[in-house]
Computed example of a mutant assay.
Amino acid sequence: MREPAELVSTPRKMSMPEQSKTDVEKELQDLRREIVEARNLVIKSDNLLKNLHAEVKTVGKRHEDFQKRQWISSAVAYVLFAVIAVGAALMITSARSSSATNERERLEKMVADLTGQLEKQRADTAAHQTAQRSASEVYKMMTNLPGDERLKGIDALVKLDTSRLSSLERQALNDRASVLRRETGDAAFERGKIAFRKNEMQSVISEMERFLAMNPPQEQALDASFFLGTAYNQTRQHDKAVPLLARFVEGDKASKTRDYAMLLLAQSYQEVGQHEKALETARDAAGTYLNSQYQPQFRGRIATVKRLMNPEAAGAPAGAPAAAPAQVAT
């Protein structure tokens, strides 16, 4: 408490009771003021404590929220880490599985290719062995069979797949076939000429067809064409005679029998309805072979063809008779 205020003496004289009363009132006022101030301080302190309590409570709540968020963040982080770890493990496993699958597919493809190559080699080997056996049989047929039966070997050679054989084996077969063709062809050619001299045209056709089927040399082929064409002409197979006789006429212009072949060719042209070619052939023969013994037949053939080409012409001579077989030097 404050010390009592020092009393100041005044010139006015007061009584003791009044002076004591004044001092007490002052002290009471001072005391009252101090009490008010103390009360204000208490209220202020209480407000400060309340504010402090509120702030502490707010800080605690914030701390709890922070801890909660931290816990949630930790949980999320752990979950994300687990997801990433699982994803990485799956990716690694998938990559290894894909690599293993690719390697397996590559190995399976390699095995399939090798198996295919092996099967192909086996098939080629089997086909080659089969072709060799067939070639051996064909060669024996062309060598061991009697007479014309050896020609069966040539027919079998045509059907044989020689692509599986070596070049030496093919050459041996072809050489043997060529020799056999020459042998049998020459024999057939001679038999055909003998039949031609005997005027046995069916035998001529049979032998000469066989001879031409063996691909003879050009000179012999032309002679065979003449004999076969003449045989067809004499047997009235003019459609078959035309190409053979035309081949002989065009291919062997120095032959002694060319005039006779042209006479037969003109007749065959006429019989198949090719009148212009028949007339041209007959005129060519008549102009080329002026001293030929067939000049009357040439002129008769020309007249006959003209009459056929112009049936309304009057006074046409009678048709020329068919040409008789000539005696051909063989």
Rank of each mutant, 00 (worst) to 15 (best):
Q29V: 01
K68S: 07
L107E: 04
S97C: 06
N51Y: 07
E105V: 04
R96C: 11
D30G: 03
E64L: 05
I43A: 15
E64P: 01
A77C: 10
S74Y: 10
L41W: 07
E108C: 01
R32C: 00
A54D: 10
L80W: 00
A88C: 12
R32F: 00
K50T: 04
V56D: 08
R106E: 02
G116E: 12
S98K: 10
G60C: 06
L80F: 02
A38R: 07
R62F: 09
Q67H: 02
N40F: 03
L28F: 01
L28Y: 01
L48E: 14
L52F: 05
A89L: 13
S74D: 15
E119Y: 11
S98G: 09
A85C: 10
N51G: 12
K50C: 04
V56A: 09
A75N: 13
N40T: 05
R62M: 12
S73G: 10
D113I: 15
E27C: 02
A88Q: 08
E105N: 07
K68Y: 04
Y78K: 13
F81K: 04
G87L: 14
L48W: 12
G116L: 13
A89Y: 10
D46N: 14
S94E: 09
I43H: 15
L41T: 09
A95H: 06
A88G: 14
S73E: 11
R106Q: 01
G116I: 10
Q67K: 06
K44V: 07
E37S: 09
D113G: 12
V42D: 15
A112S: 10
V111Y: 05
A75M: 13
R106M: 02
S45Q: 14
R104F: 04
D46R: 13
V36A: 12
S99Y: 15
S45H: 13
E34D: 08
R69T: 14
S94M: 11
D30V: 02
G116W: 10
S94Q: 08
D30P: 00
M110K: 11
I35W: 07
I43F: 14
V76M: 12
Q67Y: 04
V111P: 01
M91P: 05
L90K: 12
I43R: 15
V42L: 15
K44P: 03
T93A: 15
A82R: 00
L49D: 06
H53T: 12
N40H: 06
V42M: 14
F81I: 08
K120P: 02
Q70R: 11
T58W: 01
V56R: 06
M91N: 15
D30H: 01
K68G: 06
E27V: 03
